[in-house]
Design a protein around this nucleic acid. Structure first.
Length: 231
DNA sequence: GACCCCGCTTTTGTCTTTTG
DNA sequence: CAAAAGACAAAAGCGGGGTC
């Protein structure tokens, strides 16, 4: 996934009102859109280097978008919209081993009245729902974790994936770690116990789980290696 | 226009304590 | 003992951009 233009670099001042982030850039303070409504635990230290994009869409209220936060010299992708783009590209390019058999890809597909999943991928034998989660949290060396805050919506998605499975669909969770300094992935059960329980229930009901990390720099973010799940 | 990203602040609601 | 005030909890609404 290439950025349209090279990202610009600044330092973080503060994040507020969920969608706003102030950045120091060339001795000025600019306000950028923060396309991550999560808690972004561990990423929001004042003074962190950040990389952001500039949009030329005249209709936007904020022309800058925060894309990457650098923590301990490691870049972390925070734009949750990009995770779907990255995954779409990876599906098309057959970069995700377990999913190469699916030739048709549809984004944002409605499953029930109040649920839509990120992807419905299919071939002439199987239909498969795929839900993507963006992972940024690292609390111990080498281990990425999700979620970074209680996520009732995430739990709901898992339950809906179980339902999909019962209705004859294949179903997958894909945790996309937008950083490249982790060799393991785990569910942060101390942060959201209910999520962890539902996750286990999903696995027991045949929902499959995949986890990949990414390589990122100021020009692009691309999917990298499959990451081991650690109980 | 509906829905996705889902935490933070404000508002509203309920119960408990204080005061005249 | 009733009314006001305070404490706390639950619920609602806010925000920008993107995609269908």
């Amino acid at each position: 996934m290439k950025f349209n233009k090279k990202l610009l670099q600044g330092t973080l001042i503060k994040r507020y009102k969920r969608f706003f982030v102030d950045i120091k850039y060339k001795n000025k303070t600019i306000t950028a859109h923060c396309p991550n409504s999560g808690s972004m635990m561990g990423l929001l230290n004042k003074g962190n280097n950040v990389w952001f994009s500039e949009s030329d869409n005249p209709k936007r209220k904020l022309k800058y978008t925060l894309e990457i936060v650098v923590v301990n010299n490691k870049p972390v992708g925070i734009n949750t919209h990009l995770s779907n783009k990255i995954v779409l590209e990876s599906l098309k390019n057959k970069k995700i081993e377990n999913l190469t058999r699916f030739t048709n890809i549809k984004s944002e597909v409605k499953f029930s009245d109040n649920t839509r999943f990120d992807f419905l991928i299919s071939n002439n034998k199987e239909k498969c729902f795929l839900e993507v989660k963006n992972v940024t949290l690292l609390r111990q060396d080498n281990i990425a974790e999700f979620p970074d805050a209680i996520t009732s919506r995430g739990t709901k998605h898992l339950k809906e994936l179980i339902k999909a499975k019962r209705k004859g669909y294949e179903s997958y969770m894909l945790y996309l770690i937008q950083r490249d300094d982790c060799n393991f992935f785990k569910i942060a059960n101390d942060i959201d116990e209910e999520y962890k329980n539902t996750f286990d229930e999903a696995l027991n009901n045949g929902v499959k789980m995949l986890c990949y990390d990414c390589k990122l720099n100021n020009e692009e973010i691309i999917i990298n290696n499959q990451i081991n799940y650690e109980q």
